[in-house]
Amino acid sequence: MATYIYHRMSELFLLSLFVSSFMVASAGTFDEDFDMSWGDHRGKMLDKGKLLTLSLDRISGSGFQSKREYLFGRMDMQLKLVSGDSAGTVTAYYLSSEGNNHDEIDFEFLGNLSGEPYIVHTNVYTQGKGDREQQFYLWFDPTKDFHTYSFVWNPHRIIFLVDNTPIRVFYNEESIGVPFPNSQPMKLYSSLWNADQWATRGGLVKTDWSKAPFTACYRNFNANACVWSRGSSSCASTPSTSGVSSTPGSGDWQTQGLDANGRRRLRWVQKYFMIYNYCSDFKRFPQGCPRECRRGRFL
């Protein structure tokens, strides 16, 4: 399976490298934007705040969270995931509001036995309800180098991107009664934790603690976003990135969608690398797929 995945997607990999070369990395430092939130010193800021690492051992994992809350924006982060035998571990990178009826936008990277492709688990929660999972194999080894993982979140849609290649779009379908996360400010979080009850092959493969500590690395966080403060928000924006278009005249992330090239790359990823789509899970939804899937726009 691993050989098939890596060779079948060589064309897209080269394309994504070409596109990502136009991305501009943030010059900020982690201590300006984030607080270590848990893990008892297992999370560290290094190189004068330019590098952050999280680690997991048998006792505890670790995590961090942004100092600011955002209501819409584009967030980019470069991650290098746990290398070697990472089975049972999950590296989560997500936006979330607070409370039982929270909104959330998720990347979760599911660990694996050495040599197998990483699985990217994505989900969108609105008003405390998720169940909108899509999963993909990555078309490269995410443990060998840093790669950029991005959210574009605006009032019209949410776009998940890997090295600026779109892998998923979740549209605002409030017009047909589907809730959309557009009223609750969210912080950005990341954590490295043990989930061997489900993370690898449904929990069949457990964490090998002889390989601990497990470590994930982060750099070059960038947020072009509306920062929420005291019930209001202020926004900063930048021009659209290649492969992501905007409504004519806007020129920024606030109305971004996919241009023709972005749609082509999205279809390519979903054709060859999608391994689970809740919209196609008829055993899970015997009464019919969720309402937003029926519009034919879940791709």
Score class of each variant (00 low, 15 high):
5 I>G: 05
7 H>K: 12
9 M>V: 01
13 F>N: 05
15 L>N: 05
16 S>R: 02
23 M>S: 13
25 A>C: 07
26 S>I: 00
26 S>T: 04
27 A>C: 05
31 D>C: 02
37 S>R: 07
40 D>V: 11
51 L>S: 03
52 L>I: 07
57 D>E: 14
57 D>W: 12
59 I>V: 15
65 Q>G: 06
67 K>N: 12
68 R>D: 12
70 Y>W: 09
71 L>K: 01
71 L>F: 01
75 M>P: 00
76 D>N: 15
76 D>C: 11
78 Q>N: 13
82 V>P: 11
86 S>I: 09
86 S>T: 10
89 T>I: 11
90 V>I: 15
91 T>I: 10
91 T>C: 13
92 A>Y: 09
96 S>G: 14
98 E>G: 07
99 G>V: 06
113 L>Y: 04
115 G>N: 06
116 E>Y: 09
118 Y>K: 11
121 H>G: 05
122 T>Q: 06
123 N>I: 07
124 V>I: 15
127 Q>L: 09
128 G>R: 10
132 R>Y: 03
138 L>R: 11
140 F>T: 05
144 K>A: 15
147 H>G: 09
149 Y>T: 05
150 S>H: 00
150 S>C: 02
151 F>M: 00
156 H>R: 12
157 R>I: 00
158 I>A: 00
161 L>Q: 01
163 D>L: 03
164 N>P: 00
164 N>V: 00
165 T>V: 14
165 T>M: 11
166 P>N: 08
167 I>R: 00
169 V>K: 00
175 S>M: 04
176 I>L: 06
177 G>Q: 08
179 P>K: 01
188 L>Y: 06
189 Y>H: 15
190 S>V: 04
190 S>F: 03
193 W>E: 11
194 N>L: 11
196 D>T: 10
197 Q>W: 14
197 Q>I: 06
199 A>F: 12
204 L>F: 11
204 L>Q: 15
206 K>I: 06
206 K>Q: 14
206 K>R: 15
207 T>M: 10
208 D>P: 05
217 C>Y: 15
217 C>N: 12
218 Y>G: 03
221 F>C: 06
224 N>E: 08
225 A>L: 02
225 A>F: 01
231 G>E: 06
236 A>T: 14
246 S>T: 15
247 T>K: 13
251 G>Q: 12
252 D>W: 06
252 D>L: 04
255 T>E: 09
257 G>S: 15
258 L>S: 11
260 A>T: 10
263 R>F: 06
265 R>V: 14
269 V>Y: 08
270 Q>S: 13
273 F>Q: 12
274 M>I: 05
276 Y>P: 03
279 C>E: 03
279 C>F: 02
280 S>P: 01
280 S>T: 07
281 D>A: 10
282 F>N: 07
290 P>G: 05
291 R>A: 14
297 R>F: 02
297 R>L: 08
